[in-house]
Computed example of a mutant assay.
Amino acid sequence: MADEAHGDEGGLVFHPLDQFIIKPLFGDGPIHWYTVTNSTLWMAIAVLCIVLLLVTGTRKRQMVPGRTQSVAELLYGFVYKMVEDVTGKEGAKYFPYILTVFLFILFANYLALLPMSFSPTSQFAVTAVLGVGVFVIVTVLGFVLNGPAFLALFWMKDAPLVLRPVIALIELISYFVRPLSHSIRLAGNIMAGHAVLKVFAGFAAIAAISPVSILAIVAIYGLEVLVAGIQAYVFTILTCVYLKDALHPSH
């Protein structure tokens, strides 16, 4: 860290965005779609942790649950209640997909707080796949379940007639902006938190401000622990809200 914090002329030089560079795990060649990278590795670790939690937590199914089973049941119940509260009983059939999205983001966010790790959810390419996936599924589902009546989502019957076309245009634009805002919100918050941590870690290499920087790192790290869970929750609850629009477009 000291080499990174001090340049050749003794100035303060560090690069907080270097931690977001995607690199091949093997060799230094160009990255292709099939190249195994640091991002691929940590996404795979996140998936493995989810599988281990759910498989281990539900293997014995004891009446008095152990720690692993308690965590698995807590996450399961938390997401199921969220889906049911936002979308109603009709949305419960889509619970497995929403639980998968929530757990992937949650584990990817928390694993990224480990030393020497990588944050896949700081990459817009990753969050865009999640956001566009939600958008496509909700849109297709809306037309499959409601047919042309799904367009009622954009037509405000309670508004004055003269304003309805304008409102419909605004609603249509905001609808197509959803995957962009859905994706950027998650990637931006995760990237910002990790960048700030790296900045204070760079300052910690300077003896004069080291104690202050260390205290700041502890405080920001604690905040990032909260942000990691909150961002997974926000992404998931917005998914539920969008799903509700597909199930009940006239509401």
Results as ranks from 00 to 15, higher is better:
51 V>P: 01
250 S>G: 04
120 P>G: 08
58 T>L: 13
52 L>V: 13
121 T>I: 15
18 D>H: 12
28 D>P: 03
215 L>C: 09
43 M>L: 14
77 G>C: 08
142 G>T: 00
128 A>W: 00
233 Y>N: 05
94 Y>Q: 10
113 L>K: 11
56 T>C: 13
217 I>S: 01
163 L>K: 11
114 L>D: 03
52 L>Q: 11
190 I>L: 12
63 M>I: 13
93 K>R: 14
211 P>K: 07
193 G>F: 01
182 H>V: 02
23 K>D: 08
203 F>H: 02
165 P>Q: 09
174 S>C: 10
139 T>M: 02
211 P>Q: 12
153 L>C: 03
226 L>G: 10
183 S>Y: 00
177 V>K: 14
70 S>L: 13
205 A>L: 00
29 G>R: 05
242 Y>D: 12
197 L>Y: 09
205 A>C: 01
21 I>H: 12
214 I>V: 15
67 R>T: 05
77 G>K: 14
28 D>A: 11
165 P>Y: 06
36 V>I: 15
147 G>Q: 03
127 T>P: 00
209 I>Q: 04
113 L>Q: 14
169 L>Q: 09
237 I>N: 04
89 K>L: 12
8 D>F: 14
199 V>D: 03
230 I>Q: 10
136 V>T: 11
12 L>P: 00
113 L>W: 04
160 P>M: 07
152 A>F: 06
244 K>C: 02
70 S>N: 06
138 V>L: 01
212 V>C: 03
61 R>A: 10
19 Q>R: 15
214 I>C: 07
197 L>E: 10
242 Y>A: 08
231 Q>W: 10
232 A>F: 05
110 Y>R: 14
13 V>W: 06
82 M>R: 07
236 T>Q: 09
44 A>L: 15
126 V>F: 06
64 V>Y: 05
200 F>E: 08
34 Y>W: 14
55 V>D: 10
30 P>F: 05
126 V>W: 02
55 V>C: 08
158 D>I: 06
144 V>S: 05
222 G>I: 00
202 G>K: 09
138 V>D: 11
95 F>R: 12
42 W>D: 00
150 F>V: 11
129 V>I: 10
109 N>R: 03
66 G>E: 02
4 E>H: 02
116 M>N: 14
177 V>T: 08
143 F>E: 04
71 V>E: 04
48 L>V: 15
237 I>H: 05
121 T>P: 00
3 D>H: 12
206 I>T: 11
77 G>W: 14
213 S>P: 02
99 L>E: 11
22 I>V: 15
155 W>H: 12
157 K>N: 10
232 A>Y: 01
136 V>P: 00
245 D>Y: 13
59 R>T: 13
136 V>C: 00
236 T>E: 10
49 C>G: 06
66 G>F: 06
30 P>R: 12
36 V>H: 03
241 V>L: 15
18 D>Y: 04
167 I>L: 15
197 L>R: 07
5 A>R: 09
218 V>N: 04
128 A>H: 00
248 H>K: 15
43 M>D: 03
82 M>K: 09
74 L>A: 15
23 K>Y: 03
244 K>S: 09
72 A>K: 11
51 V>W: 07
222 G>A: 08
250 S>T: 13
103 L>R: 08
22 I>D: 07
191 M>P: 02
35 T>P: 03
61 R>P: 00
66 G>Y: 01
217 I>N: 00
203 F>D: 00
113 L>Y: 10
